Deep mutational scan, measured.
Amino acid sequence: MSIQHFRVALIPFFAAFCLPVFAHPETLVKVKDAEDQLGARVGYIELDLNSGKILESFRPEERFPMMSTFKVLLCGAVLSRVDAGQEQLGRRIHYSQNDLVEYSPVTEKHLTDGMTVRELCSAAITMSDNTAANLLLTTIGGPKELTAFLHNMGDHVTRLDRWEPELNEAIPNDERDTTMPAAMATTLRKLLTGELLTLASRQQLIDWMEADKVAGPLLRSALPAGWFIADKSGAGERGSRGIIAALGPDGKPSRIVVIYTTGSQATMDERNRQIAEIGASLIKHW
């Protein structure tokens, strides 16, 4: 067993022997301040990774656009098919120029040779490549099948209805392509620590998230040296922004954090800054 596999296998073990965790309302004060600064709703939840206990939450059962955070769930569904012998990570998928959609920095470079399922998941999570996500959605049967996968996990809230990039439209009061912070946090925890996926697939999923290259201005910008984070960000229309993450000190994750916002007129930089400040408060009061 590799060191990384050992780390993920012992996530519940280490967490069980940690000192009790206590909620700190100071972080919620910052979440509410972010709402004021952005002029928009902000949803927040913080779960203990081992027990699933909610440590703090704000608007945990209000719907927010998922945006690209759905790509972690998508690759979880792909990995479940791999575990069941219905898919192979090494299978190569070929596609054409007509398949390319807006923001496809990886797939646009491989029109000639195609990409493997493993490479597509890596591109979808680490670079948020939209064509990679659409190609992977095709392998599982489309958005409705991802929703069905989530329902089978016990998540009857999260739903995907459309493809990239239309799913980022974020129309107010439109339930399409949305989740709730509580539902997303619980589902992410199941994917990373539950028995739904094999140990190898859980490790692969967290490795992809740990290698995320496009979430630097968010929670990662607030992390002290030595902290662990595996995350996936999302951005959408109407001032929408979000991030889902597993993080913790001492090089291992111990909490799940989900943050979503929508309806702001603020710039992307300002949305990023507010999420980073929430992260800084979380870490300060850990």
Rank of each mutant, 00 (worst) to 15 (best):
S68V: 07
T116H: 07
M184Y: 11
L223F: 15
Q37Y: 10
H94I: 13
T138E: 04
V78N: 00
M180L: 10
V42N: 13
T27H: 10
T69G: 09
K32P: 08
L49F: 04
V117Q: 07
L79S: 01
R176K: 14
A133H: 05
I283F: 05
G234S: 14
R176N: 00
K190P: 15
S80T: 14
T126D: 06
P60H: 10
L197T: 08
L111P: 02
D231W: 10
G90C: 01
G39T: 11
M115W: 05
G226A: 06
Q204M: 12
D129S: 02
V106E: 02
T178D: 12
S96E: 07
L73I: 10
M67Q: 01
L120G: 04
L146G: 05
T158I: 02
Q88A: 12
T262N: 05
S122R: 09
T267P: 10
C121R: 00
A225Q: 14
W163H: 12
G43S: 13
D48R: 04
I93V: 01
L111D: 08
R159C: 14
E119P: 03
P249Q: 12
A84L: 04
M180E: 11
L55G: 04
L160W: 06
S104Y: 11
I229E: 08
A211I: 07
T147N: 03
P172T: 02
I171T: 00
G251Q: 12
G141F: 03
L120T: 04
Y103N: 11
Q88G: 05
S221D: 14
L219G: 09
L47N: 01
A77Y: 13
T178E: 14
W227N: 08
T126H: 13
L192M: 14
D36F: 14
Q265M: 10
E56G: 10
Y260D: 10
D83M: 12
F70K: 00
R238K: 15
I278Y: 04
S128V: 03
H110Y: 06
A185M: 08
A182F: 05
R162P: 01
G52E: 12
G90H: 07
S128P: 06
E102K: 00
G236E: 00
A235S: 00
T193Q: 05
P253D: 13
T262P: 04
T158L: 10
L120D: 06
W163D: 01
E87D: 00
L247S: 12
E277G: 07
F64T: 07
A182R: 08
P181W: 00
T126E: 13
A34E: 00
G279I: 15
Y95Q: 14
A225Y: 02
A40C: 01
L137R: 02
L205Q: 05
I259Y: 05
T261P: 14
G142V: 00
S96H: 05
L135A: 05
L223H: 06
D161N: 00
L247W: 07
S254W: 13
D212W: 03
T267N: 12
K109M: 07
A123D: 02
T131W: 07
E26C: 14
L73Q: 01
T27W: 13
A132Q: 09
L136T: 04
K144I: 11
Y260V: 12
V214T: 15
A235N: 13
M127T: 13
G279H: 14
D99N: 13
Q86E: 12
R41M: 15
E166T: 03
R189H: 14
E210T: 13
M127C: 09
S201K: 00
L223I: 03
S240K: 15
T198A: 01
E164Y: 00
T131L: 04
D161G: 00
F64A: 03
E62T: 13
G142M: 04
G242Q: 03
R59V: 04
P105I: 09
P224Q: 02
K30V: 15
M127I: 08
D231M: 15
H156R: 09
L120W: 14
S51E: 04
T147H: 01
R271G: 14
L199N: 07
G234D: 14
F70R: 02
K213G: 10
T131I: 11
D177V: 07
H151Y: 04
I45F: 12
L150C: 07
L79F: 05
H94R: 10
I229S: 10
L160S: 05
N272M: 04
V257Y: 15
L150W: 02
L111W: 06
Q37R: 06
R63Q: 08
T179Q: 14
L218W: 15
Q37W: 11
V72N: 11
T262V: 11
L191W: 00
L137C: 01
L146I: 01
N173E: 09
Q86G: 09
M67T: 14
E102A: 01
H156T: 11
R273W: 13
N272K: 12
W208Y: 11
G216F: 14
E169P: 04
A185I: 14
K30T: 11
M115G: 04
L188A: 14
N168M: 13
A185S: 09
I125L: 08
L160I: 00
S96A: 12
E195H: 03
A123I: 07
E145R: 13
L219H: 09
Q274S: 11
R273I: 14
E270H: 15
D212R: 14
D33T: 10
Q86V: 09
G216P: 15
L28E: 02
R91H: 09
K53S: 05
M67G: 15
V42S: 08
L28P: 08
S233W: 13
P143G: 08
L137D: 02
S264G: 04
K213A: 07
F149Y: 14
E210V: 13
V31N: 13
E61F: 07
N152C: 12
K71Q: 14
R41S: 11
R176M: 00
I140M: 10
P105Y: 07
G216N: 10
D113T: 08
L146C: 01
L160Q: 13
E169I: 00
G236C: 00
I275P: 10
L167Y: 02
T116N: 01
I206E: 01
Y103K: 10
V42F: 12
P181L: 01
L282E: 06
G85S: 10
S51C: 01
A84H: 08
R91S: 03
A222N: 14
M153Q: 09
A235L: 14
G251E: 08
G248P: 08
E46G: 03
T147C: 07
G239Y: 03
R118G: 05
A170E: 02
N272G: 13
I206H: 09
L146E: 07
I125F: 08
T139F: 06
L191Q: 11
E87F: 12
F228A: 15
Y44P: 02
L167F: 05
M180R: 09
S80N: 11
I278E: 08
T193P: 11
F64W: 07
